[in-house]
């Protein structure tokens, strides 16, 4: 585990930690919004999607 922590803490590799967090966070934002929109589509309320995404 020492090597892992050593690699992770290298200044060169800090962007990787940022990238991992960004990828997970943005995938989460997408999935949450996509599921909301899918619910609207299933309820035949496609016209409400624009309003939903502006929230």
């Amino acid at each position: 585990m020492n090597e892992f922590l050593h690699i992770l803490s290298q200044p060169d590799n800090l962007p990787i930690a940022g990238m991992l967090l960004a990828v997970l966070a943005l995938l989460g934002v997408w999935l949450r919004q996509a599921l909301r929109n899918d619910r609207l589509l299933r309820d035949e309320r496609a016209s409400d999607i624009g309003e939903e995404m502006r929230r």
């Binding site: 999935l31 996509a34 599921l35 899918d38 999607i49 995404m53």
Partner: peptide, 13 residues
């Protein structure tokens, strides 16, 4: 060329 999903997030489509 499928336009579904353009401008809005969706998984189902």
């Amino acid at each position: 060329p499928n336009p579904r999903g353009n401008g809005y997030f969706t998984l189902r489509e």
